[in-house]
């Protein structure tokens, strides 16, 4: 899957928001660690794919008309077997149709459920003065309430990515508090640099979020990914 083709497809459908499956596929190609996620359009497909990506799995609604999947009951986590996948598939579709009756439903994303880790956000936004900039912060309330995030102008050098990680006020959480081991900052740094490279070579990308990205003692993986492309007239 290449970026031009995905952008073209999205524009043909009048979308600027790529689907989670599209976004993750592009990021995977770019070398960014993302939780393996595939699209299922039928219950049958969902079961097959769940077995392929490996249990436990997460199912999420895929619709160009639904941005906040959890809010409409479009996400089911911790599905451990075939039977629970079957029930979840039906329920997600029903919830989505119920909440947004006119929504176009592309299908359901089937994703291997990554184990819980330290949640961080790696993002990119387009600043009116500086153009593409990278953003990094701790996930959850740290970003929402404390606005504990750092920025760098794209393209980033290695030192920029390292400094972004070390500059946040909640840095101690990454270094390990209350006996927790430190997280793999190198993996986060790599992800930041890969995303920077990806957006630098793809100017159509206007916003990008890996939120959350789970970071472990060894390695990191983006559980959710969101990409917004430029309106055709801005491109």
């Amino acid at each position: 899957m290449n970026v031009q083709a995905v952008v073209k497809q999205a524009r043909a459908e009048g979308r600027t928001l790529l689907s989670e499956v599209e976004a993750k596929a592009l990021l995977f190609e770019a070398g960014v660690p993302v939780a393996r996620t595939v699209l299922a359009t039928t219950e049958e497909e969902a079961r097959t794919q769940a077995a392929q990506v490996g249990y436990p799995v997460v199912l999420k609604i895929v619709s160009p008309d639904i941005a906040h999947k959890s809010d409409v009951g479009g996400v089911k986590v911790g599905l451990k077997d075939k039977a629970s996948v079957t029930g979840a598939f039906e329920e997600i579709i029903a919830n989505a149709k119920n909440a947004v009756p006119d929504a176009r439903i592309t299908g359901v994303a089937v994703q291997h459920m990554a184990p819980a880790g330290t949640e961080v956000i790696v993002g990119m936004t387009t600043d009116p003065q500086f153009g593409p900039v990278m953003m990094f912060g701790l996930g959850g309330i740290m970003v929402e309430v404390l606005k504990d995030v750092t920025f760098r102008v794209v393209p980033l050098e290695e030192r920029d990515a390292s400094q972004m990680i070390d500059e946040i006020r909640g840095k101690a959480i990454l270094d390990g508090v209350r006996g927790q081991p430190p997280v793999d900052k190198g993996a986060v740094k790599d992800a930041i640099l890969k995303v920077s490279e990806f957006v630098a070579t793809n100017p159509d990308v206007r916003e990008l979020d890996l939120n959350p990205m789970m970071v472990y003692e060894d390695g990191a993986i983006a559980v959710d990914a969101r990409i917004v492309i430029a309106e055709p007239q801005e491109a």
Binding site: Q129, F151, V153
Partner: peptide
């Protein structure tokens, strides 16, 4: 002058 994000301006200086 139009205001941009001050956080990004500061980050650009640091960078």
């Amino acid at each position: 002058s139009l205001a941009g994000s001050i956080e990004v301006f500061d980050a650009a200086c640091r960078q």
